[in-house]
Simulated assay, not measured.
Amino acid sequence: METPEPNPKKSRWQWLDAIPDPVAAVALALTILQLATALAPVRAVRRLWRLVEVSPARIARAAEAGDWAGLVRPYLGHMFFHINLVHYVVNLTAILTAGTLVFREMQAKTAPGKSDPAAAFIAFFLLCGMAGAFAFVALNPKTYMPMIGASGAAAGLFGAVVLMIARRDWSALPLAGAAKTIFVTVAISTALVIVNYALFALFDSLLDLLQSNKLMLSRIPGWRSQLNIWLGGGSAWQAHAGGYLFGLVAFPLFERMARSSR
C-alpha cells in the first residue's frame, strides 16, 4: 500500500508565482527606477524628471521648435517615475492587480505557440499611459504644470477589467447583448468615478489636517517637507480619464493582437 506524499510546505512568497512575467517585468522596472531616484541626489532627480514629465506648454514649445525628442520622450517616459512613495505603491498595486487579470484574459484566448500575449500586454500598457498623457495635454494645453507617473496606464488596465466584467452574462438584467454590456460598463464606471472622487476628497482632507497646526507635527523640524515627500502631489484626473477610456475601448483590439500569429 502506497503512503500518500506529505503536502509540500507552502512558501510565503508563493503569491509571486501568480503574477505573470510581463506584469512582473513592468513592476520590476518601476521598482528599480523608484529605488534609483530615491537614492540619487535631489538635483539629478529633478533634472531627470524635467526630461520625462508631461508639461503641456513645454511640449508645445518643443513641437514648435521641431524638437522631436522633447515632444515624444515625455509621452513614453513619464509613466516610469513617481513623485513619492505613496504614488508608487498605489500605482504598483493597481498594475499588479489589474494587470494580472488583463494578461490572463489575453492569454486564455491565445493559441499556444502561435501568439504573443506578452507583447500585446506591454503594448497595451504603454499605449494606455500615452493616452492618459495625451488627455492631460489636450485638457491643459497652456499650463506648465507637470504630470508624472503610471496612473494613466494603471487606469487603462482597470478600464479593460471593467469591460471584461461587463461582457459576462448578467442574467438578472432584462437587456440583450450590446445593451447589457453598455449598461454594466456605464454603471461600473459611474461608481468608480464616485469612489475615486470620495477617496481623493478624503485624502486631501487628511493632508490638510496633517499640514495644519492642530497636530503635534508642527513641532517636528522639516515636517512640511517630509509630508510633501511622502504624501504630496496633486491628482491628474485627466490622465486617469484618458487612460481609462482608452483601455475600455481599445482592449478588444489588443485581445485580437494577442491571438494573432507571430
Rank of each mutant, 00 (worst) to 15 (best):
E2F: 15
T3L: 15
K9F: 12
S11Q: 12
W15K: 06
D17N: 13
A18L: 12
I19W: 07
I19T: 07
P20D: 04
D21V: 13
V26F: 01
L28Y: 08
I32M: 13
L35R: 04
L35F: 13
A38S: 12
L39E: 08
L39W: 12
V42T: 13
A44V: 10
R47P: 07
W49P: 02
R50S: 14
E53P: 03
E53Q: 15
S55T: 12
P56Q: 08
A57I: 03
R58C: 06
R58E: 15
A62Y: 09
E64S: 11
A65Q: 15
G66M: 12
G70Q: 09
V72S: 08
P74H: 06
M79A: 00
M79G: 00
H82A: 03
H82Y: 01
I83K: 07
I83C: 03
N84E: 04
N84G: 04
N84M: 05
V86D: 00
Y88P: 01
Y88R: 02
A94Q: 06
L96G: 00
G99M: 02
G99D: 00
L101E: 04
L101K: 06
F103W: 10
F103T: 03
F103L: 02
R104V: 08
R104F: 05
A108W: 09
G113L: 04
K114H: 10
K114C: 10
A120I: 04
I122V: 14
I122S: 00
L126K: 00
L127R: 00
C128H: 01
C128W: 03
G129I: 02
G132N: 05
G132A: 04
A138R: 07
L139Q: 08
N140R: 05
N140E: 09
P141D: 13
K142T: 15
M147D: 15
I148C: 04
G149F: 00
A150H: 02
A153Q: 01
A154E: 02
G159L: 04
A160L: 03
V161E: 02
V161R: 00
V162M: 01
L163W: 01
M164Q: 09
M164V: 10
I165F: 10
A166E: 03
W170C: 01
S171Q: 12
L175F: 12
G177P: 06
G177D: 06
K180F: 05
I182A: 13
T185C: 06
V186R: 07
V186D: 06
A187I: 05
I188M: 06
S189H: 07
S189W: 10
T190D: 01
V193S: 01
Y197I: 13
Y197S: 11
L199C: 09
F200L: 11
F200P: 05
A201S: 13
L202Q: 10
D204E: 13
L209V: 11
L209F: 14
Q211T: 15
Q211E: 15
K214G: 14
L215I: 11
M216H: 12
S218F: 15
R219T: 15
G222Q: 08
W223M: 11
W223N: 14
I229E: 12
W230H: 11
G232W: 07
G233H: 11
A236S: 09
W237Y: 11
W237M: 12
F254K: 02
A258V: 06
S260Y: 10
S261Q: 13
